[in-house]
């Protein structure tokens, strides 16, 4: 989008930053909401989705065996263990299918939003963060525990656990910038209503001004 002349001359830099979708938020020297940051997250999440779907198909008994080049039959032991049956009862769907939906969510929430969504749609970045970070860590811990509790190891489960942790590392920067911006709004105003509006991405004069100071214009 081209930027037309700002109304007040002293806010030239501010208004430019406010409309510059590639602006760089604190504390980084790159834009964590840029496509080059987000697309790889979506691609890796989709790999997790495909692997989890494959295991879900086995748990749904739509395929007869589960591939495992390292632990042999142990994968099928894990995927049909008591633990997985309990989780099936809680989730109503196989745990691998539940995981597949969570990875798909990582990709969906990673794709949605502009390259300045850390300011324009904080709610979306927060949902994305919840899906990737706490859910990812819990699922990785659960996979490790499944190996210890069930006594069998599942190669593809371990692959998805690694994917979860890689996604956490790749996604934290955007969530961090977004939360830092929200905290800045709160610290500068202590205005609950404003924080609420900013969280939902509504355009307010105060939020816009704070966002403009929070970001530096893109260098390229």
């Amino acid at each position: 989008m081209t930027v037309s002349a700002p109304i007040s001359s002293d806010s030239t830099a501010d208004s430019h930053a406010a409309t510059d979708l590639d602006a760089i938020p604190e504390p980084f020297d790159y834009n964590p909401s840029s496509w080059s940051q987000r697309i790889p997250i979506c691609v890796i999440a989709m790999v997790g989705f495909l692997i989890a779907t494959y295991m879900g198909l086995f748990q749904w008994k739509l395929i007869d065996s589960a591939w495992d080049p390292v632990f042999g039959g142990q994968t099928e032991a894990v995927l049909t263990s008591d633990v997985s049956h309990w989780m099936h009862k809680w989730f109503l769907i196989p745990d691998a299918t539940f995981g597949a939906i969570a990875y798909l969510g990582d990709a969906i929430f990673g794709l949605a939003g502009s390259t300045r969504r850390w300011q324009y749609r904080p709610w979306l970045v927060v949902i994305f963060g919840i899906d990737v970070i706490p859910l990812g860590i819990v699922s990785a811990v659960l996979v490790a525990m499944q190996g210890l509790v069930v006594g069998s190891w599942c190669f593809l489960c371990l692959v998805t656990a690694v994917i979860s942790l890689v996604l956490v590392v790749m996604a934290y920067d955007e969530v961090w910038a977004c939360l830092k911006y929200l905290k800045r709004v709160w610290d500068e105003t202590h205005d609950r209503k404003l924080l609420w509006d900013v969280f939902w991405g509504r355009r307010t004069a105060e939020g816009e001004a704070i966002g403009a100071r929070f970001a530096t214009p893109a260098t390229t």
């Binding site: 700002p6 208004s15 406010a18 409309t19 979708l21 502009s114 324009y120």
Partner: peptide, 24 residues
């Protein structure tokens, strides 16, 4: 699945409508 897709805004790749015009 529907819960995840339903919260995604229309034209999600663009900024929300109020942000699509420059300051002032």
């Amino acid at each position: 699945l529907l819960m995840m897709f339903a919260i995604i805004p229309n034209d999600a790749s663009k900024p929300p409508e109020p942000w699509r015009v420059p300051t002032g």
